Amino acid sequence: MESVVLRIIRDTKIAREVKQLYNYQCQICNETIITKVGRYAEGAHIKPLGKPHNGDDNSNNLICLCPHHHVMFEKGLFSISDEFNLLGDVAGKLIFKEKHKLNLLNLAYHRLAHGYS
């Protein structure tokens, strides 16, 4: 039996650069996971890749999150305002490096998709 799997090819270099910019620390809780092979964090797309969202795979659509906050963000338990305030079940402000430019349209898309607008 033969099967075909379709999946979005992500540019791991871009995600790695964003994670390195934040030293693998979550932009929400500022924590990092230390593993036997080094620091660990996840690159979270603000506007998801693939259909029906069609988000871009570039640094202005990525944030560095711990696995806990990544799942919460993907499930819409919190979102981010244009001023980088956290909305929903997480309080505070997104930890942000000036060098990291985010596309505000992607933030608006995430808020709308999860009922924050």
Rank of each mutant, 00 (worst) to 15 (best):
E98H: 08
D11I: 13
N85V: 12
R111A: 10
K99Y: 00
K99L: 01
L49S: 12
L105W: 01
E83F: 07
I95S: 01
L86F: 06
F84K: 06
K101F: 05
H45I: 14
N30G: 12
C29Y: 06
S79F: 04
V90L: 03
A91R: 04
D89H: 09
A91M: 03
A15F: 08
E2Q: 05
K13H: 03
G76T: 12
D56K: 15
G43K: 10
I28T: 09
I63G: 09
C26V: 13
D82F: 07
Y22C: 09
H53S: 14
N58Q: 09
L87E: 03
F96R: 08
K75L: 08
I28Y: 00
L94M: 03
Y109A: 10
M72Y: 07
R7I: 07
G55F: 08
H68Q: 10
C29P: 09
I33K: 06
N103E: 04
N106S: 10
Y40N: 04
D11C: 12
C29V: 13
I80A: 07
E74F: 07
N58V: 14
I46C: 08
H114C: 13
K36M: 01
S59A: 15
L6S: 09
S81P: 12
N103R: 08
H70S: 13
C66V: 15
Y40H: 07
T12K: 07
A41K: 06
Y24W: 05
L107N: 11
A44W: 01
V71Q: 06
N61I: 15
A44K: 01
L86Q: 06
K47Y: 04
V71M: 09
K36Y: 01
H100G: 09
V5D: 00
P48R: 07
